[in-house]
Amino acid sequence: MLGNLINQGRIKSPWVVHFDCGSCNGCDIEVLACLTPIYDIERFGILNIGNPKHADVLLVTGTVNHRNKHVLKNIYDQMPGPKAVIAIGACGCSGGVFREAYNVVGGVDKVIPVDVYVPGCPARPEAIIDGVVAALEKVKTLLGMTA
């Protein structure tokens, strides 16, 4: 009963943490733009927080390089389950225009499992919000809430 209530809360109000791997800032500022009055993801209960230990959804922007892949793995490991990962932008999905650069490992999925890919260079805020909603379906499955 209580667990059910908590699960309902998780779905109704997912907390997201944002981590910037080697992004050009384009997607980062679009993630931030989601928080601001025009797009305002808080009206859907989505809250941006700084601590990965409180988060349900990890938003990753940018390519992974050899130095930040350890940080990315570390942040992912700190998040409690059930969790979902969203790769944002062309770089997060595949490496984008930088995939041939020498210090680039590739997309986020080279390091951690990714549930939702949001394309775009940079991804539009509407697309990012859509991505979070799509990721919640996965969290629902993990919680066994799909009817």
Binding site: C21, G22, G62, N65, R67, V97, A101, Y102, V104
Partner: peptide, 23 residues
Amino acid sequence: LGYVHRGLEKLCEVRDFNQMVQI
């Protein structure tokens, strides 16, 4: 530093000078 280093100055060797605008 180095968490965002991609090495894109080096990409000028694989992209021509018009494509470098996008890089």
